[in-house]
Amino acid sequence: MTALLDLLGAALLAAGSAFLMFGALGLLRMPDIYNRLQAGTKATTLGTLLVLAGAACLRPEWWPKLLLIGLFLLFTNPLSSQVLARAAHRTGAPRSPLTRIDQLEERGGGGS
């Protein structure tokens, strides 16, 4: 039983770090800040959650703290991306020429 749990935990760790790698690759390859944030924030959130779940399988007695880190990241990770995207847009960060439409710019600057 423990051996099985260890295997599951190790597999979760590997899967999590694979997603982290995809996220970092996206961060490097994407053409503008918004797409970079998109790639970065999704992959790192899932990647970290998988790694934390894997750690919980390998060390079940650590679950409260791992859960706390997971909840915290689940809540703050998208928030920091959003705040950064908003700051980038307000400061007029360049968009990729592939961009089709920007209804936020059409609305005009300022706002709440």
């Binding site: 790698m21 970092a24 950064l84 960060a93």
Partner: peptide, 29 residues
């Protein structure tokens, strides 16, 4: 590998927002 890739974006920038985005990913890694 993930850390090195994100570090690449951190070094290349080009804007401050890009570097902060890269920094955020580096922290999570």
């Amino acid at each position: 590998t993930a850390f090195l890739l994100a570090l690449g974006r951190f070094i290349r920038g080009p804007s401050a927002a890009d570097r902060v985005a890269a920094f955020d990913v580096l922290t999570i890694i």
